[in-house]
Every structure is written in C-alpha cells, then in structure tokens.
C-alpha cells in the first residue's frame, strides 16, 4: 500500500440490521466501496438522497462499526476486517474530523459557543491554562468568520450559516489533517452557500487540509473538488477527475445526473438532450440483482441483471462500474 494517500478505503461495507416484519434483515447502506484521497486533495461525493453518502463518511471515521472492509489513514491501518485490526480511535480523533449535515441538530442547545468549540480542546487537553484555551477559541472563531464577542451565546441564537461556522470551528479545533464535510452547505441559503464553500477552500489552502466533500449538488462539488465520486444505492458507480467527469461522464447514472444540472451559460449548453430517469430508487432492502442501477438504466442488458459490473479503470484513473463499453 502506498503511503502517498492520506486515506485509503477498500471494500468498505456497512450493513445496518433493521426489522422487517418479524425478521431482522441487513440494510446495505454502503456496499463494497473503495476510494483514495491524496493529501491536500478534495474528493467530492455525490449521489441521490439516501444512497449512503453520510454513512460512508461516518463509517470511515469509525462513528459506526464497519461490517467489513479496510480503512487506512496516513499509513496507519484503522480497521481491517480480514486481518482483524481494529485500533482505538482516540489518537486519530485529533487528525480526522467531521462537519455535519444539519447545523441545527449538530450543536448542543445547552452549551455556549465557547464550550462547543472548546470541547475538543478539553477532551484532548490541548491547552495548559484557562487563558490559552480562551485565546485558542477566539482565534478559531476569527478563522471561521464569527464575531468573537458572541462566544458566550447559545447555539440557537445563531443563523444557519453561523451555526455551520461553529461546527467548522469545532472540527478545526484539534487541527486535523482530514475533514469529512457532510453536505455542509445544503441546509443553507443559496447566498450563504458560496461564502461557506469559499471558506472551505481558503482553509484548505492555509492548512493543507484534505476533504471528503459530500453533496448532492453537482455544481458545488465541481467547484470545490479535485476528483468526484458518484454513488448509487450504496455502490460506487464512477470516480474521475472533476473536469473529466463533467465533460466525459461514462456511467449512465452520472450522465443522467449531469443532464439534470441546470447549465448557467446557455451558449455552452450541451447539445445532448435531458435524460429523464424513470422510476424510483429501489429500496436498499430490495436491492436489484447484478447492477444496482439496472432498473432505471437505458442500456441495461441481460448481463447487467446477472452480474455485478466490476469497477475498472477506463484510462487516466477514470474508474467506472458498468458493463456498457
């Protein structure tokens, strides 16, 4: 395994036991997903609601116990189901952090901003005196563009955008190398989205951060990502460099996603017609056989129904899982 990647995830699976009638069946929220992230790089992760993006982020941070697979962070194996490696996460919590999807439920309503941002400092004992703690919190608030005078306020007194900034400051408090950004802007107003996305970019430049940037808005992801991964029903469909994926989508699902994106400039609008996806996303409990996308795919063949397509390189690291050449 090369250590030039900050994160390597291979064959990661996360099945949740759910009650279906009287039986407990596995809900395959994430099924056999592999990807890598280089230092200082942003990998965008897109897919429809419920396809398992959040679960990928949480599982690789070990907030959930993975069902199987392998997670390597910065050369250290965090989890490997085959070699039975399952390390204590405490030291790694300082290096990998998460910004949560919902700025309203991700901040404790009974804590002040100061205590929310200060908690990681407390837990990892990152200060020697009360004064140092205070200074660090002020600095963090400044970094994310919050007024330091509001440190003693409670989270519910802030707007959505400000709350998301508090969440970002909390993640930055331990000075991590890698942050999972779980749809950090989708709950925000469009005008504020741009501000927050730009802040993520600035922070990346200043601190050399790596991101797994989850979103369902392809335009936002294209803007911030170096590479983009497309997920469908817990499976990885396609990974490629951001520009390559936008210009030359290979997987039928990616093609349909891209055709649904409103194009800002009509002059450069693609001549191709909108591909309208038919039918609904199947329930993750009733996964189609073979290719998970085949129930809605225009190119589906006999083979697609029988066999899961392999995740293969179509040149220049453009990985696709599809039988259609």
């Amino acid at each position: 395994m090369s250590s030039e990647n900050i994160l390597e995830v291979s064959h990661l699976k996360q099945y949740f036991p759910v009650k279906n009638g009287f039986r407990t069946v596995p809900l395959k929220a994430v099924d056999d997903i592999s990807f890598t992230i280089k230092p200082g790089e942003t990998l965008g992760l897109v897919g429809e609601s419920g396809c398992g993006k959040t679960t990928v982020g949480r599982t690789l941070l070990r907030l959930y116990q993975p069902t199987s697979g392998c997670i390597v962070f910065d050369g250290d194996v965090l989890y490997d189901s085959e070699k039975k490696i399952d390390v204590k996460m405490q030291p790694y919590r300082k290096q990998m952090q998460m910004v949560f999807q919902d700025p309203y439920s991700s901040l404790n309503p009974r804590m002040t901003v100061e205590d929310i941002i200060g908690e990681p400092l407390d837990v990892h004992k990152l200060y020697t005196s009360k004064g140092e703690r205070h200074d660090k919190i002020m600095e963090l608030m400044e970094t994310v563009g919050l007024n330091a005078e509001h440190a003693t306020r409670y989270a519910h007194e802030f707007s959505g955008g400000q709350r998301q900034r508090i969440g970002i400051a909390r993640a930055l408090a331990v000075d991590p190398k890698f942050i999972v950004c779980d749809e950090p802007v989708s709950a925000l107003d469009v005008s504020i989205q741009a501000q927050v996305v730009n802040m993520f970019e600035d922070l990346q430049k200043q601190r050399g951060l790596s991101y797994l940037f989850i979103a369902h808005d392809l335009l936002v992801v294209q803007h911030i990502s170096d590479r983009i991964a497309v997920m469908y029903l817990g499976h990885m469909m396609e990974i490629a460099d951001a520009d390559e994926l936008m210009d030359n989508p290979i997987h039928p699902y990616t093609q349909s996603l891209l055709s649904a994106v409103p194009i800002p400039d009509p002059k450069t609008a693609r001549k191709s017609q909108r591909i309208i996806l038919e039918g609904d996303v199947p329930s993750p409990l009733k996964m189609p056989s073979g290719c998970p996308f085949r129930t809605r795919c225009r190119y589906a063949t006999e083979q697609c129904a029988c066999e899961m397509p392999p995740f293969t390189d179509r040149g220049n690291g453009h990985m696709v899982a599809c039988w259609n050449k």
């Binding site: 949480r58 941070l61 907030l63 996460m89 405490q90 919590r93 300082k94 952090q97 998460m98 949560f100 991700s106 901040l107 404790n108 908690e119 990681p120 837990v123 990892h124 969440g167 909390r170 331990v174």
Partner: peptide, 8 residues
C-alpha cells in the same frame, strides 16, 4: 455523534 467524533 459529534461528541463521539471529537473523542468525548
């Protein structure tokens, strides 16, 4: 979950 992520 955020608390768990921090290592609390």
């Amino acid at each position: 979950l955020a608390a768990k992520c921090i290592g609390t």
